[in-house]
Nucleic acid binder design. Structure first.
Lengths: 210, 210
DNA sequence: ACCTGAACACCGTTCAAGT
DNA sequence: ACCTGAACACCGTTCAAGT
């Protein structure tokens, strides 16, 4: 422990986080979860990885649960971006967009299982603020619903409550993800085939018969 | 602490569990989870509720994870029974059976959220024995697949790989359950309607057009 | 097939006192 | 906007020694 309390030491440390310790905590938490699972997420470990005291987190979050909530939010942001990206690359047809988003959804869950676990975890925050409708989560769902609505506007998708229709699709891809029904998502892998298979079944009830 | 070590005391205690402490541990764990969530499941608490030492569990389970695995199994057994029950009460038509089972699935998840959480939890047992295909879980899925197969035999459901078709239905109801898309399951409640709505969409892709 | 009791290495969280 | 350090009430798990 060299030079305790000298200007240089303090400045170096201070500059490392220069005011964004909050983001650093979330990032470190995200990485920790991805590598070792939710159980490994301890305030002590996060602190030691960032080189700050284990109490530093309490400056930015009232609670471990509050930090977890922020991590969940960050996960949903990455998730929404993945979905948006897939949609933009899928051309104009609503069916193609839905199929691409379905694949992106399942792929995200297969690639980042720990994120999904935190994002959609139940218990834990029992009767707390975890009940509040996550903004980034709402955005992710909004992308899906918007696709449905555009498909209805262009005449590809049958009429009906777009929110309910979007939920049907959402439940389908979420179920596939959570049950790990499609894990091999390599090109022409079994997972790809199953996602396409279930998409096709859903489509025949969802699309307009032309 | 009266009469330590007398015959009566020992016999009374010994008879309370009379050899089925293993079941008692699972039952107590199940109740604890249902009432206070997975977090409340501690070996200390289970022990004190059963009036045994907190170390007694180690006579029957190598681990807390092993006890949790047994609890998961018990949950799946209850679950499979609920599905079978719904099917038996639904008449002979495959479509009616599937609909009843879908409702039973979602209802079970809504009524016993903590069971579902344990049964389908990811992380926790990372790379351990939790990967092994749960027998009771397989039974629950088997009921669904059997219904599909009978529907195909009777000409109600279209031909195709029954396992894949069953998985599509399974993913749908599982997704609805996990996303809590149908919580009000009272007669003519919103939840009932949504389950029927999504069933109808799936059916148009699943059933034969007559 | 259990029991007590002590111990170990962890947790989250609070508090007091610093800079 | 951080820090150290001690403390508290919890964990799961191991061990030693009993009945």
């Amino acid at each position: 422990m060299p030079g305790k309390g000298t200007r240089v030491q303090k400045k170096t440390r201070g500059q490392y986080h220069h005011g964004n310790l909050r983001e650093a905590l979330i990032d470190a938490g995200l990485k920790l979860i991805a590598r070792f699972g939710v159980r490994a997420l301890t305030l002590r470990e996060i602190g030691s990885q960032l080189g700050v005291s284990r109490m530093a987190a309490y400056r930015h979050f009232t609670d471990k649960a509050a930090l977890l909530s922020a991590i969940r939010e960050a996960g949903f942001t990455l998730f929404a971006e993945a979905l948006e990206d897939a949609r933009h690359k899928a051309g104009k047809a609503a069916a193609a967009q839905l199929k691409a988003m379905a694949l992106a959804y399942v792929r995200f869950a297969a690639t980042h299982p720990a994120y999904i676990e935190v994002m959609f975890s139940w218990g834990e925050d029992r009767s707390e603020e975890s009940r509040k409708p996550n903004p980034a989560g709402a955005r992710a769902f909004g992308i899906l619903e918007e696709t449905i609505r555009q498909g209805q506007a262009s005449g590809e998708i049958r009429a009906g409550n777009s929110t309910l229709l979007a939920r049907v699709v959402w439940a389908q891809v979420h179920g596939i993800s959570m049950l790990r029904l499609a894990t091999d998502l390599s090109p022409s892998g079994e997972g790809q085939k199953f996602v396409q298979f279930s998409s096709a079944i859903l489509e025949s009830g969802l699309l307009l018969n032309e």
